[in-house]
Design a protein around this nucleic acid. Structure first.
Lengths: 126, 126
DNA sequence: ACTTACCTTTACGTTAACGTTATACTTTAA
DNA sequence: TTAAAGTATAACGTTAACGTAAAGGTAAGT
């Protein structure tokens, strides 16, 4: 597929895809010289993963350091204990984020009930 | 306390605090004319909440719409069913984000184990 | 070969969220 | 009451993550 189709499927614009290519985040699977860029399902999957990481609050810079660890073949990554530590660091960050979200969730829930009570009380008062 | 102390406690700069004031996100508890701004624990708590929401990926604009619902007294919010719906929307968004994080967590975990196996295999091979 | 619809690069523009001066004013302590 | 340390406003600067417009190149069908 070409760039516009990929863009639609991923919910972004062609400009965004080219921008990611400049950053080294996403390469076209086929390209001859300065011709059109062609993509496959693999690039779509990778792009969707990038979008997911963005909604989780990561910058493109941070994503650049995580994405390879998720898509590169293990044997190319192996031999580097450091990478394992980085991944484990991300794991911890995720756990902490889940904790924060869970706490915020509780707080929101309490607030909702409080306001609901207020509404109910006003309704029964007239 | 004054602006610099609040800034330190919250891990931001004074500039950031004034910027939030411009956006209507955080008001000083005491202010005479153009004199110094004074803050209390309440503002610290609110500022920390803002920081939390930021790490969760919300923009300051989005935070502006959530913060009042968390800190305003219920009776001022009541009477507006709409607000309840907004809060419930945020609840759903949080649940979805937790799901995404959980899935990413699993993926990371699998990756870690894969790489670990590779390292172990290489170690036992010499 | 030619049209049509997309695509290419280049380059300047935009917005959010502050950083960084510069200049003047407030507080507090001596 | 004056010196030192912190703070005030105003205004221009910066970076990330694209948007947008211009000028030309490509691919596919006819």
């Amino acid at each position: 597929m070409r760039i516009s189709e990929l863009a639609k499927l991923a919910g972004v614009t062609p400009r965004t895809i080219r921008y990611y290519e400049d950053l080294g985040l996403l390469q076209a699977s086929d390209r001859q010289g300065t011709g059109f860029r062609y993509y496959t399902e693999d690039e779509l999957e990778r792009l969707q993963k990038i979008n997911l990481l963005k909604t989780l609050g990561l910058t493109l810079d941070e994503i650049s350091s995580v994405i390879p660890l998720l898509f590169e073949e293990p044997r190319k990554l192996a031999g580097k204990q450091m990478l394992l530590d980085i991944l484990k660091g991300h794991l911890q960050a995720i756990d902490q984020q889940v904790d924060s979200l869970t706490q915020l969730r509780t707080e929101l829930q309490e607030r909702i009930e409080l306001i609901q009570q207020w509404i109910d009380r006003q309704a029964s008062q007239k």
